[in-house]
Write a protein that binds this DNA or RNA. Sequence first.
DNA 1: TACGACTAATCACTTTCTTGAGTATGATGC
DNA 2: GCATCATACTCAAGAAAGTGATTAGTCGTA
Lengths: 189, 189
Amino acid sequence: MALRHAVLAALLDGECSGYQLAKAFDVGVANFWHALPQQLYAELTKLEKEGLVAGRQVVQETRPNKRLFHVTDAGRAELEKFAAAVSKPSFIRDDLLVKVQVADRIGTAPVIEQLEDRASAAEAKIELLGKLLRQLRGDAGEEEFLRRGERIGPYLTCLRGLAFEQEHRDWCLRIAAVLKERQSTHVER
Amino acid sequence: MALRHAVLAALLDGECSGYQLAKAFDVGVANFWHALPQQLYAELTKLEKEGLVAGRQVVQETRPNKRLFHVTDAGRAELEKFAAAVSKPSFIRDDLLVKVQVADRIGTAPVIEQLEDRASAAEAKIELLGKLLRQLRGDAGEEEFLRRGERIGPYLTCLRGLAFEQEHRDWCLRIAAVLKERQSTHVER
DNA sequence: TACGACTAATCACTTTCTTGAGTATGATGC
DNA sequence: GCATCATACTCAAGAAAGTGATTAGTCGTA
């Protein structure tokens, strides 16, 4: 039940619309949670009903009207309660790992291809996150920023995202190499 | 829809019961998928109905009877199809990250505590995985084993699990340290 | 000899996530 | 001038995942 909290967390950095939120959940926020637009709209509706966020209609001339949401006091309280509660452990859950687990039994070729695709995707994400981090910390160095920066929360989650993607890329490349070498040496499969 | 494939993957290493499977999903298999016993029993039932696994009753004297399942040819085919299909990208999805994102806004103390708990949990998992890896590769060194070992799939996923846990632990400790230092220097929060 | 842990599993239910389609308008590109 | 993209959102249906409780015999231990 943490999508709601992820939404509250994202809205804490300023009023925004469901649409903008959906974008955020595709880049920065994606480092700690992922969701499709439909889920976000649905969650916003629920949160509004429960009084944890409030929305206001913004009439626009050249674009469709939109609703901007912000976190209410009750919403903040809910977040605080959430932060104090025990968190469930985090798990890796990845299709590709299932495939690697059985790759040596059922054929390595398609898995190698996917490992390499994943490595490229991770590489792209790494660059993106690097930019995001530089942007967040401005002129300051990392140590300096973490000591004295105003708002470090998003920076810290991005660091995690970055480390995750780097680890992911390295693993993908290493495993791809291992499987390739085996493919070429013992051809008996 | 990959719990079914995770189950098939786990059963590929030998016939086992729902109960044994549940144990496996708590240690080794947990490196690529996690599920509760109830989910596994339910999935096994479905898989059996679809002919992807087959079970046989084993009557026991001193323990409750059990059903041992193995993957059928159709199940193998399904796994092969799955391995060849594109995999959806993997996301981090972690309560604790949501909390860190807002920690500097709503109070760091409970978050620091949880970060340290997580770090210990990760440490324990790291040791466990280290043992598992040594066990899997037997006498051989890692490089050697990966080149010539019979069954390297589980080893490769464990490597990923290990790297993940190490990264997780390091991040938790670093972030806890950062938040602590801020707590002590600018006390104005 | 009572207590809890282990083996082995099932039932009932809820929440969450995904898929796919649909609406409407303005801006941008070829 | 036609196509596609971006903004902004909604609805419905279904699959997947998660939660909680329950049964019941056996084994070790305090």
